[in-house]
């Protein structure tokens, strides 16, 4: 037996990995021409309206859509907490423009300075607004910092392709400061930082103690199908179990979709759980039956997800990304039965 003659350069790998990640995140066809009239007064205005959900707690709820040239990437929830001495920002949005407009919206609410800007995880709609905030305030879990430093430019390039000119001037800016789970006092607010994973390799949750507001990041989706480009379903489901046991949560701000409170407090968590369990079972059952990927794609969605935004699209993406591994595992089980 003879191996191929030329050495195989290891240098190629990081580029491949980054391109792959960018490709996996790409949610739709290449961007069409921007529909906004250049130079118009309203051009590239996200019309951000911070909503006060309780004392000192504000959220900006994005559309439950895919990235496109109309929404400019405003498909994500961000938020901020106003304390006695400063402001804590939770996620900076999909672009430099979004970050700048978020900062202006904060300034319209309070004259206090931004003292901490958190990125819950390394997906581009959650950190590409970082440029608008003082570099010294940017903070994230260590693995999130690494991922943004490693893949940020490719993820940013991908959003340029999807959202077009809304992205102008946007560059990935990795946070310089690492966060650890536990209590953190910032701006006069007492925060509980919770470090989990499953949606990505590192997912940060922020619980504002005074108001009982949990910023759950993308571990929790509400009336919007969960995205899985970097997901580990087992870890994600374990993280949701853990979230369900947290004390002192009175309202939940999901990464995508409406805020939940009162009798509906658990709804986003349960929805996300139901989707992930169903998806995992669909993949496992299909692989155990020997189905080919296109046969799995052709199977119908469960009726309970009929009202969940982007369900068909996310099902397709999740099957395309996750089924090869499940299929391989089933293939290895031959002779075991």
């Amino acid at each position: 037996m003879r191996a191929p003659s030329l050495p195989r350069p290891v240098l190629c790998r990081p580029r491949l990995a980054a391109l792959l990640l960018a490709a996996l995140l790409a949610p739709s066809l290449p961007a069409e021409a921007d529909t906004v009239v250049p130079g118009a007064a309203h051009a590239f205005d996200y019309r951000l309206q911070p909503r006060r959900i309780t004392d000192g707690v504000y959220v900006l709820i994005g559309r439950t859509e895919d990235f496109d040239t109309r929404n400019g990437g405003n498909i994500v929830n961000t938020g901020f907490l106003v304390g006695s001495s400063g402001v804590v920002v939770i996620d900076s949005g999909p672009s430099r423009r979004y970050g700048e407009q978020l900062r202006a919206a904060i300034a319209a609410v309070t004259p206090l300075p931004v003292v901490l800007t958190l990125n819950t995880h390394a997906h581009p709609d959650h950190f590409l607004g970082n440029q608008a905030f003082p570099a010294g305030t940017l903070a994230a879990l260590p693995a999130t910092r690494d991922a943004i430093a490693r893949e940020g430019e490719d993820l940013s390039a991908n959003l340029y392709r999807l959202a077009g000119d809304w992205m102008r001037g946007t560059e990935a800016r990795p946070p310089g400061r690492s966060l650890a789970p536990g209590r953190l006092h910032a701006g006069g607010r007492e925060l509980e930082l919770i470090a989990l994973d499953g949606h990505t390799g590192a997912d940060l949750l922020v619980l504002d103690r005074a108001s009982g507001t949990l910023f759950a990041g993308d571990l929790v989706f509400h009336d919007r199908a969960p995205t899985t480009p970097h997901a580990d379903l087992d870890h994600w489901l374990a993280a949701l179990e853990r979230i369900a046991t947290l004390d002192g949560v009175r309202q939940v701000v999901p990464g995508h979709g409406e805020v939940a409170s009162g009798t509906g407090l658990q709804t986003p968590l349960r929805q996300t759980q139901a989707w992930l369990r169903w998806l995992q079972q669909r993949l496992d059952t299909s692989a155990a039956q020997g189905l080919e990927t296109n046969e799995v794609l052709a199977l119908p969605l469960a009726a309970e997800f009929a009202t969940i935004a982007e369900a068909a699209t996310e099902y397709r993406r999740s099957v395309l990304r996750l089924y090869p591994q499940t299929e391989h595992k089933a293939l290895q089980q031959h002779g075991a039965r």
Binding site: A3, R13, A26
Partner: peptide, 28 residues
């Protein structure tokens, strides 16, 4: 989004690939 044919394989960058080359799994 493209690029599939002009990218190097993941295996081409891995020191492991030669040991596994042509390892075949089959199931009915």
């Amino acid at each position: 989004t493209g690029g599939g044919c002009t990218l190097p394989s993941t295996g081409s960058a891995s020191p492991e690939w030669q040991r596994q080359l042509n390892h075949t799994e089959v199931r009915a």
